[in-house]
Design a protein around this nucleic acid. Structure first.
Ligand SMILES: [Zn+2]
Ligand SMILES: [Zn+2]
Ligand SMILES: [Zn+2]
Ligand SMILES: [Zn+2]
Lengths: 131, 131
DNA sequence: GCAATAATGTAATGTTATTACATCAATTGC
DNA sequence: GCAATTGATGTAATAACATTACATTATTGC
């Protein structure tokens, strides 16, 4: 998925997430952007849909929240399975990718002839500082 | 986590999930149990909390829904990491466990000194029939 | 310019989950 | 037995998350 030029709203949401310490809910993003003219949830959700599609943002299912992708690359190519550790103490989220897990999951789904479209891996717990 | 005797509400919710073809949202469960005296969401959520604690039920984060554990064992011992395939077509959910994935995730989190409390693995896609 | 497409604005509504407080039942200690 | 504690339940209100519907504006292709 090549990333096209972002629109005004997409840029505002992307910047909000990029400059955030951690993940933000859609409504938190909305509040942050009220000064920039945002008035309704849909403005956020529409921008997020596109940013998710472009791979610039990830959704954390277990938090109902969103986080900027931390990958250094330019997102010209789809990065594979994305996994996260999420600290319950400080809220820190760490994104990581592992080829071994990806291949193992691929083998397991292939065995049941399941066609994977999206894989969610989220590990809740406590980081080193918060242990 | 040894499973104590279930209370009346816990039994009703457990039965509803056990007899369901697939996962159900809390509000769907509520509707199913209105004839049995359920009136408010909290009655469902409280029962689900206990059933989750006992390992009899799993929460599907990407669906905001709940499903009865499909493991044959008696839940006397905690089964490790649970993963699911979820078909977008027919709604079929398949629970599986894999030692290799569990060990790999364990190694990865240990490397960042992260203390895991709960791991979510959910694979969305299409099953063989719905491909 | 004009049609087609994509993005935006706004309101209303739908869905999921929690807080607060009162009541009831079972268990424990004496 | 009985008070005290604990766990479970009932009910209402509210909070948090997400979508539908419809109107308007901006951009693109011709
Ligand atoms: Zn990423
Ligand atoms: Zn932490
Ligand atoms: Zn299970
Ligand atoms: Zn299917």
């Amino acid at each position: 998925m090549a990333t096209p030029q972002l629109t005004k709203n997409q840029t505002l949401v992307m910047d909000a997430l990029s400059h955030s310490e951690g993940p933000m809910s859609a409504y938190t993003i909305l509040d942050k952007l009220r000064d920039h003219g945002f008035r309704a949830p849909l403005q956020v959700y529409r921008a997020l849909d596109k940013l998710l599609e472009y791979g610039l943002v990830h959704r954390l299912e277990s938090l109902n929240a969103f986080v900027a992708c931390s990958c250094p690359h330019d997102h010209e190519h789809d990065h594979g399975v994305t996994a996260f550790t999420i600290c319950e103490g400080c809220g820190q989220v760490t994104e990581f990718h592992d080829e071994a897990i990806e291949q193992r999951l691929s083998a397991l789904t292939r065995a049941q002839s399941f066609k994977t479209e999206k894989t969610t891996i989220e590990i809740r717990g406590h980081c080193q500082s918060c242990a």
